[in-house]
Amino acid sequence: MANIKISEQKVLQIEAICKEFNNEKGELINVLHRTQSLLGYLPAEVQEIISKNLNCSVAHVYGVVTFYSFFTMIPKGEFPISVCMGTACYVRGAEKVLDEFKRILNVPVGQTTPDGKFSLSCLRCVGACGLAPVVLVGEKVYGRVSPDGVKDIIKEYRQG
């Protein structure tokens, strides 16, 4: 078992989430959702706490975490970048935009830069197809992004 490194307060919060769902095994996905929105990610020790409280094996929890792409064991960056790969964005060149982010940040999709500033992920449709291709940085939406525009977006946050 991994040593618990997260704070006692966070442990209590995770236990409270489990309890809210009556420590039901069948509520695992809901518990994981809530926990990830609390911590931003689901590290090993968190999965162990959840497994103990829901009385299911850690292997099972890990199996669910690795199955759904929404769940992550890697902490999100200070500025999480999401590139929309929905149909409209895709046909208008989202993949080239994504490639440019990967090139400049030097991280693959799903990873965070070593300085913890940026993380890169893909998502499917934010409902702004008229602005395709769309990129989100945190809550902020950038529309009609071209590969050339990528460096400017990154610059905005590097300086800030």
Binding site: A59, Y62, G63, T66, F67
Partner: peptide
Amino acid sequence: VGVLSAVNRGFMSVVAPAFE
């Protein structure tokens, strides 16, 4: 005993212990 579980997805899926 609960050691083994299917983990990961699609072509990458394997049966493995927690955290592989």
